[in-house]
């Protein structure tokens, strides 16, 4: 029998142990912490300022177990409402109950956000965001992007960006 070969036996055992840990890694990736690359220009200039290289970001999925933790100006990864096989990255511009002053493609100029929905916009004015498809259910949220990790010269927090969209704050500004 080939299993008598001690090297082969130990390598099969090692492979089995390696395979048995794969589900644990996948669960950590799915529910705890993850790393992801960003493609596209919708979050310029905060992410992908130069389209020649992709940014890599650290994604925290654990802190969103309680969806009340989502705050305005967080950068979130969500499953696209228009194409469920795609994941998009957007910035929160309003949470439930806020009244939003919308931008061009949206049909009305105000929008009140329903319960457990979010208003998401890309920092780039040309991004396809809530102004196209309306408020997004928090059920589609995958995680919060917290740090830029790859171009090491920009290692650290994700810069602020976007505009103020909440009517109450706009009124306060004047």
């Amino acid at each position: 029998m080939f299993l008598r070969n001690p090297y082969l036996k130990s390598s099969i055992k090692g492979a089995g142990i390696f395979i048995s840990w794969i589900p644990v890694v996948l669960v950590i990736d799915k529910y705890f912490y993850s790393v992801s690359s960003v493609s596209g220009s919708s979050m310029q200039p905060a992410l992908n300022p130069f389209l020649t290289r992709k940014d890599w970001i650290f994604v925290n999925k654990l802190s969103l177990n309680d969806l009340n933790n989502i705050k305005v100006d967080d950068v979130l990864l969500i499953r696209s409402p228009t194409n469920p096989s795609k994941i998009v990255i957007k910035r929160v511009k309003g949470v439930q109950g806020d009244v939003i002053r919308t931008r061009y493609p949206y049909l009305r100029n105000r929008c009140t956000i329903p319960k457990n929905h979010l208003w998401l916009e890309g920092d780039n004015i040309r991004s396809i965001d809530s102004n196209t498809y309306g408020p997004v259910s928090t059920g589609l949220v995958i995680g919060r992007a917290e740090k830029i990790i790859y171009p090491f010269d920009r290692f650290g927090d994700i810069p602020q960006g976007g505009r103020e969209a909440r009517l109450s704050k706009l009124r306060a500004i004047g």
Partner: peptide, 18 residues
């Protein structure tokens, strides 16, 4: 929603209460 047709019974997350 892959390969689903009209008339299929599905489980979904409630949009207003995730």
């Amino acid at each position: 929603g892959k390969d689903l047709k009209v008339g299929d019974v599905i489980v979904a997350v409630k949009p207003t209460e995730p």
